[in-house]
Simulated scan of single mutants.
Amino acid sequence: MGGYILRRVFQSVLILIGITFLTFVLLYLIPADPARQIAGRSATAQTVENIREQLGLNLPFYQQYFRYLTGLLQGDLGRSYLQKTEVGALIWSRLPATLLLMVGAIVCELAIGLTMGLVAALRRNTATDTSLMVLSFVGVSSPQFVIGILLLYVFSVQLGWFPIGGYGTFMHMVLPSLTLGFLGAGWYSRMMRSSMIDVLRQDFIRTARAKGLKRWQVLFGHALPNALLPIIAMIGIDIGLFMSGIVVVESVFGWPGIGQLAWQAIQRVDIPIIMGVTLVSAFAIVLGNFLADLIAPLIDPRIKLR
């Protein structure tokens, strides 16, 4: 186990360094000029050049990247061009809101998706099964901003059950969590259905039934724990999906997380914030997959980490 953890940590560090390099290259190649954004449209060429020199944007690419990587190894994510604040402090102040929304979304997608998948598996090849799978297909195909706007229109504008936007109470979190969770629920329902049908066909399920166990004991005591194994891996992947999709959802609902921070930085070409949010998102993806790999053997002792 110790050797496996060390290898995974080493691989994770290499992945994160690679992501910083690729992101830095893409931001270096974009035609927008951060110095011009900071100086404003009426600034002279000399003013723009002075700002570019102050920020180190006039240096060759390798020098800029080396400076960033050196600071990163010291725990410094840089300083925002426009807000004149440390990027680490900005992200840290927004991270609790994003994590809260992510937890709410995971709860929603698991509650909806696993229930749909379980019911569809138990009633396979029926009208209920078909209806649930069609609904899951709609879920995975619908853009998140469309779902968010529809939920806002129906439940906030028309019915007035939830606030239109903002942050601070449980009611503020419901609609954004459902928006993020609806997409994942579709994937989980299809995965749960396939996994449960496969498990119910196994010999140990027939053995459990032959012993005279009640149906709910067979279902929840034997079938469900084995059917959940692929779901664990999906949760780790979902952390990364939420980090990418959360930018849109936070903007729609006015949720003050790192997604909204990233969107504002993209509009202003604030490169240090974009790099910082990308790195935090990549770290969340790597950590989620790593934890999923560690949890899987606890559910199924047959799985060995090597």
Rank of each mutant, 00 (worst) to 15 (best):
A185Y: 08
Y4V: 02
L72D: 12
S189Q: 04
R41S: 14
R215C: 00
D270L: 04
A210M: 13
S12W: 10
A43M: 07
A296P: 00
W255P: 07
V247H: 02
I15S: 10
S195M: 11
G166Y: 04
L95T: 03
T44P: 03
W255I: 06
S80M: 06
L110F: 10
S42L: 13
V218T: 10
L100Y: 13
T126G: 11
T130E: 13
W161K: 02
V107D: 08
A233M: 12
Y81Q: 05
L150C: 07
L99D: 04
V218L: 03
M192K: 01
L151V: 06
I274V: 15
L305T: 07
F10R: 13
G78D: 13
S80E: 11
S80D: 11
G186E: 11
E250G: 09
L180E: 07
V249S: 02
L16Q: 06
P176F: 10
I15V: 15
I197F: 04
P31T: 12
L183C: 00
Y68A: 05
Y81G: 02
G2T: 12
I266R: 04
G257R: 14
A43K: 12
L14Q: 11
V154G: 00
V199F: 07
V154R: 06
P31A: 09
T44W: 03
G221Y: 13
M191I: 15
A208F: 14
A35Q: 11
A265T: 00
A262Q: 11
A284Q: 04
A210L: 12
G78W: 10
Y28P: 01
I205E: 13
I299M: 15
T130F: 12
D270H: 08
T115E: 08
L178Q: 07
I274A: 01
S80I: 06
A265H: 00
E49P: 01
A121Q: 09
W216K: 10
F283R: 00
M133P: 06
I239T: 05
I106M: 14
A97H: 07
I271Y: 07
I285P: 01
R52W: 11
F170D: 00
